[in-house]
Design a protein around this nucleic acid. Structure first.
Lengths: 370, 370
DNA sequence: CGCTGGCAGTCAGGCTCGACGAGTGCCAGG
DNA sequence: CCTGGCACTCGTCGAGCCTGACTGCCAGCG
């Protein structure tokens, strides 16, 4: 009732020229399937994705437009099952793709289909309306989940390597100040600093000068170290203040940037009939652990091109019933984005969406820095 | 299986001195219940909260330690049903509290019980470790959902009235700059500004001076207007830049602050057996509409004391199966926090948790500004 | 040798039926 | 006013049954 209702969704499955160069590490010597087996597999996957029910031999013949009888297809299906690409939920049910079946399917799905115009415009419009980098990423997340009706994940570029454009110390109350660090990526980090009791505004002015001279231009990852050195060489009366400032950056700044994850569209997951209640709960719980999530996504997007992690290809136990489609985008350093959904997702459509959004995000970002 | 497992949870129901002054607007002339009816009602509510099953007359006698027979209690229950305080899910089932029943129960629950020590320490520790205001609020949300195992909501204080401590313009690339606005609450707002092609660093310096002189000290809500006036009186060659800066603040700044909502613990909702799949989905969807959420919470916490909105007392249709327990906290201007869960929640425990966290948050915040 | 139709076998899902048990309302008696 | 007893109502659970959707296998055909 929820998905695949607005549009007929034809997958435009193209027969691949060859067995297809699997650019994901081949886990096993993947015997090259004969042509008809491929067609059958593809039919099973697409039909199952579209309707969510196990698909039988008769359906395959109809869907694939094959010129043989169901009995023949049954033989092929037996072979495919032997190969571990499909399976029966129970005897006397149709076949369902296994994770490896999906993998095989996805591997010859190097679809270059662009997003259709109305959607493309939606993306452009929404991303164009952002008023700062965080807002931009939040909107990216939102548009991604709208397009795919899946959970969207966006992580900000790691800011470790970004350079500081501005270091400021804003006094809030007599006892506290706010340390502001602005990177050339447009990211702003801030830390509350508890000042020693006797700190005067004049002291702060002097600290500002010191910070401006010695910290600006450094990489964010180095800030804490640099501040440590500053404390050493500082005049005695500024020492306490500088120590306070240094301590405020203790936990590291880069970490914080890593954990900056935007998640959207959880509601869609709940609508999915695929999941049991407790699976669902565990997945949602995982979505709240931003740190884990960030690592997950960063790990997945080591490659240049979009990556698909299907079911048990995911390291994390709780994600064995889900697939992740992710891609990184470049800025000063790469960030990544992607979606998470049931293994039974429309990979073709999702892939185009993820690619398109990543491209658009990158474009918007580079527009801003030119 | 999920909730109420770690501790036996005694509610310490104290018999109230009088009928209790209902400090929430009395919707109806609420007939003052005779004493035994109150005891019965209370027993039904607590038992139902604890076990989630309709409770029958026999159970009531046992639980409440009454010295009368089940038959007598049945008569009382009949009366309570007539009053609309309890109901039967179906004939021959026990009774379940209605929303109005919960309301009645909550109204004489002016419990002042403090949080127990280990929990209190957990809260203090976690909130103490925050390194800036946003982080503090995020941690508040986290601790709140851990304590209650419900969905937690925290909104930042409205910053409309906050005063600007610092206005900065950081040039990122030749074509763009970042407008930084730091309020005295420690909140930082930022806007990307697309600069006219010919802008030089010297121009920016002059703009900085202008901003520092005329914008600093104003309320955030006024910034856009003030910038508008600045454009009028500006020298011709700075005009374009100032227009760009003004336009960057167009959407209003306060709005953005309002929408700063922290949500945590959604996973807990899914674990709840109470909800149907589609209800759940709609609630989660609502949780993603930060703007609506902020309004909801702000509306609810108009009062000084903690507020409980039970079931259909919530305006929003999708929340008719949930209760909201919320309290505001003061800073320069009030923010609010609360939790959302099934109407069948442990109001006593949740109330103490919400109060305790709000208090601690307020304390931590004022500590910072002294 | 590959394809086909036919046939028997398997099994999940849905349906009905009946027994069971929890809990109620009512009533007559103390 | 309280109480025990009794008749009644329903939801739940399990057994038994049928149906329909598949499959695997086999013998025959081109």
């Amino acid at each position: 009732m929820t998905a695949s209702e607005d549009q007929p969704l034809q997958l435009t499955v193209r027969v691949p020229s060859g067995p297809g160069e699997a650019d994901v590490v081949a886990e096993e010597p993947t015997a090259p399937l004969d042509d008809r087996k491929l067609v059958v597999l593809r039919a099973i996957v697409t039909e199952y994705i579209a309707h969510g029910e196990p698909v039988g031999s008769k359906r395959v013949v109809e869907a694939a437009g094959l010129d043989v009888s169901p009995a023949t297809v049954r033989n092929e299906m037996g072979a495919l099952e032997e190969l571990g690409l499909i399976e029966q939920p129970h005897t006397s049910a149709g076949r369902v793709p296994t994770d490896r079946g999906y993998r095989r399917f996805v591997d010859d799905l190097r679809t270059g289909a662009p997003l259709d115009d109305p959607r493309r415009e939606l993306v452009e419009e929404l991303l164009g309306s952002a008023h700062d980098v965080e807002d931009l990423l939040a909107k990216t997340s939102s548009v991604l989940s709208q397009l795919t009706r899946l959970v969207s994940l966006v992580i900000a570029p790691a800011i470790d390597a970004a350079r500081l454009k501005l270091v400021e110390l804003v006094s809030l109350t007599p006892g506290s100040a706010l340390l502001l660090l602005v990177a050339d990526t447009g990211r702003v980090d801030k830390r509350l600093v508890e000042l020693p009791a006797a700190t005067t505004e004049a002291d702060l002015d002097r600290v500002r000068v010191v910070l401006g001279e010695h910290v600006r231009g450094h990489r964010l990852g180095e800030v804490h170290t640099v501040l440590g050195e500053l404390v050493e060489g500082a005049p005695a009366d500024l020492r306490e203040v500088l120590v306070a400032v240094r301590d405020a950056t203790a936990g590291g700044l880069a970490d914080d940037g890593l954990h900056h994850v935007f998640v959207g569209g959880q509601a869609a997951l709940v609508g999915e009939e695929t999941f049991e209640r407790d699976q669902l709960s565990r997945v949602l719980q995982l979505l709240e652990e931003r740190a884990t999530l960030a690592r997950l996504l960063a790990d997945a997007t080591a490659d240049d091109d979009a990556v698909v992690r299907i079911g048990n290809e995911n390291q994390v136990e709780d994600l064995h019933a889900t697939s992740l489609v992710a891609q990184r985008y470049q800025l000063v350093t790469a960030g990544s984005l992607g979606v998470l959904g049931p293994t039974r997702m429309d990979y073709a459509r999702v892939l185009t969406a993820v690619r398109a959004v990543a491209d658009q995000l990158q474009e918007t970002l580079t527009d801003l820095s030119s």
